[in-house]
Amino acid sequence: MKLKSWVAAGALFLVSTGAAIAANLTAPEGPVILEVSGEIANLNGDGVAQFDMAMLRQLDWREIETYTSFTTGMQSFAGPTLASLLAAVGAEGDRLNATAINDYFVEIPVADADAHNVILAAEMNGKRMRIRDKGPIWVIYPLSEAEAAKKPFDTEMIWQMNRLEVLD
């Protein structure tokens, strides 16, 4: 009973601390790579939360090796998890509207972030992705080679993404 209470209290502390930190989102210093809007609690602009590369690197940055149906062979991607980004902006919705530089867009369920360990990849094989390489951000669902062949998330795996809107 006692222990549980302590754990709960600790968890509450951590969450409120995180929220407090996020609430004070710093303004980006470098070029803005990603702009988050919609149902979010933490802002650093006019109704939006903007991220430069340095800010993204401060999120839960991961490096994974995976397969996609658009590439040949195993690829290495690096970038923050979608979950950490959503936590940082205090997202309060179920759906995400992801939009690319050229205004291509797709809807992604918020639940996928945890269910599929979705990565907002900014680097591919150790290098920043240029636009021509599907940068600045390619939404990556980690998959085995066999899974990738079935193209289960090809629609959701939007590339050249630079905007994210959190919807109810």
């Binding site: 658009f70 530089i101 050229n102 240029r130 636009i131 021509r132 050249q160």
Partner: peptide, 16 residues
């Protein structure tokens, strides 16, 4: 440059 990049990104898609 961004517009050029965007066109460039289509190339491998078309060739693939």
């Amino acid at each position: 440059i961004v517009a050029t990049e965007l066109l460039w990104s289509r190339m491998d898609v078309l060739q693939n």
